[in-house]
Design a protein around this nucleic acid. Structure first.
Lengths: 207, 207
DNA sequence: ACTGATGTTAATCATTTGATTAAATCAATT
DNA sequence: AATTGATTTAATCAAATGATTAACATCAGT
C-alpha cells in the first residue's frame, strides 16, 4: 500500500522543507513569507513544498501547532502538579521559558501575532483546558493569600511571571540595539534573569 | 508636481485615509495589509491612497513614525527629568503606558514586529539618543543600589517596568480568551495594574 | 532490463496586488 | 457661465505570488 508513516521513509526532504518553513514562518510570519522563500531556504524546488504539503496554509498550520505546543504545551503540566510547591512552580515556569526561548527566540512574536490576528483560529486549539483558573497553582496561591491576609487576583501573578520572562525576548532586538549589547551579552542577561525573576516574584507577591 | 504642501487643502480626505491606514497597518502589519483594505476602510477609491501618499511603503513609514513616537516618544522626557524622584518616574512610566495602551492596544505587537523584522529601518530612527544608559533615572537607581548595598543592572529595572506594563496588552486576546474575560473586565484589570505595578517594582527592586 | 511508484524540476497558469492613467466631478475665481 | 486647478473615480497595467502541470529522474521489486 501507500504507508508513508512507515519507518525511515523520506525523512530527509520533507523534514528539511518543514525545518525551512519553521525558520521562515517563525521569523517573518504568514503574510510576509513567500513560498519561494521556503523553497530557497530548504534548497528545493518551489513545487516540492506543494507536493509534500498541500498548500502554504496547510504547511503554516503545522508550524503553528508546533510553535503553540512549544509555547503553551508545558504550562498545564507545571501548574497542575500537586507534588510541587508554589515556589517550585514559579522556578519551573521561569526555567522552562528562559531555556526554551534562548533556543527559539522568535516564538514570542510569532505567538503574539497569531493571537492578535487569528483569534478565531486559536479558539479551537486551546478551549479544551481551563488552564490557569482551576489549577493547583491557583489554589496554592489563594491559600497563601488567605494566610497572609492579602487579596491579589491570581491572574496578576501569572501575568507577572510570563511578562517578566517572555517580554525581554520579544523586545530583544530593540533593547540590544539601544544599549549596544551583543547576542552573547544578552543571553547572559537572560540567564541572570532566570535566577532573579523567581526571587523578585516571591518578594513582590508573597511578601 | 505642484505645491501640495500649501495651506488648509483637503485635510478631510487625506486625514481619513491616514486614519484608515493607521488602523489597518497597526492591527495587521505591513505585509498582511492590502492597499485595497485601506481604501475600503477609508471609504475612498484605491487610487486615492497613491494620490495623497506616493506608495504603500511611504504611507506605512508615516504610520510607523507615529506609532514609534507613541511608544517611545515620552520615555526620554520622563527618564531624564532631574526634578522627579526615582519612584515618581516609575509611577509616570507605568501611568503613561497603561493610559496610552488602553486607547491604542495594537501598538505593542506592531512595534515588536517592526523591531524584529526591520532592525535596520529602526537604527536611524533611534540612534540619536542613548536613552536609558546615561539618564538621570539610571543615576538615581545606581545611587539607591549603592546606599542599599545591592547590585542590580539598571537594565533589569527598566525591563521589568516595561515588561509588567506592556506585555499584558500584547497578550490580551490570549489571556482574555483563556480566562473568559471581556474587554471591560480586562480594562479593569489593567487599571488595577496601573496602581499595583509601581508598588511591586518598589517592593522587588528597592526593598 | 522492465515497470511502476516516488521524488524533483522547469515551465506555466490564474489570481492578487501595488501602481498608473485618463477621464469625470467639484469648488473657487473670474 | 467659463476657466482653472484640485479631488475622486473606473479601468487597466505589470509584477508578484500561490498553485498546477507535464516531463524527467531515481530506485525498488520483479
Amino acid at each position: 500500500m501507500k504507508e508513508k508513516e512507515d519507518i525511515g521513509k523520506s525523512e530527509s526532504t520533507e523534514q528539511k522543507i518543514k525545518e525551512a518553513a519553521r525558520k521562515v514562518f517563525t521569523s517573518k510570519g504568514y503574510a510576509a513569507t513567500r513560498t519561494r522563500d521556503i523553497a530557497e531556504e530548504s534548497g528545493f524546488n518551489l513545487a516540492l513544498i506543494n507536493y509534500y504539503f498541500r498548500s502554504k496554509e496547510k504547511l503554516f498550520e503545522i508550524i503553528m501547532l508546533d510553535n503553540l505546543q512549544l509555547f503553551m504545551g508545558s504550562i498545564i503540566g507545571i501548574l497542575d502538579e500537586p507534588a510541587t510547591s508554589l515556589e517550585e512552580k514559579v522556578d519551573l515556569l521561569v526555567t522552562y521559558y528562559v531555556d526554551m526561548l534562548i533556543v527559539n527566540p522568535g516564538i514570542p512574536v510569532f505567538i503574539l501575532n497569531l493571537v492578535n490576528n487569528n483569534p478565531e483560529a486559536l479558539k479551537e486549539k486551546l478551549d479544551r483546558a481551563s488552564l490557569v483558573a482551576n489549577s493547583v497553582f491557583v489554589k496554592q496561591f489563594q491559600d497563601l493569600m488567605k494566610k497572609k491576609g492579602m487579596n491579589i487576583h491570581p491572574l496578576h501573578l501569572f501575568m507577572n511571571i510570563i511578562s517578566l520572562t517572555v517580554f525581554p525576548f520579544a523586545a530583544a532586538p530593540l533593547i540590544k540595539a539601544k544599549n549596544g549589547i551583543d547576542d552573547e551579552g544578552y543571553k547572559q542577561l537572560m540567564l541572570e534573569r532566570k535566577k532573579l525573576i523567581p526571587v523578585w516574584i516571591k518578594t513582590m507577591m508573597m511578601v
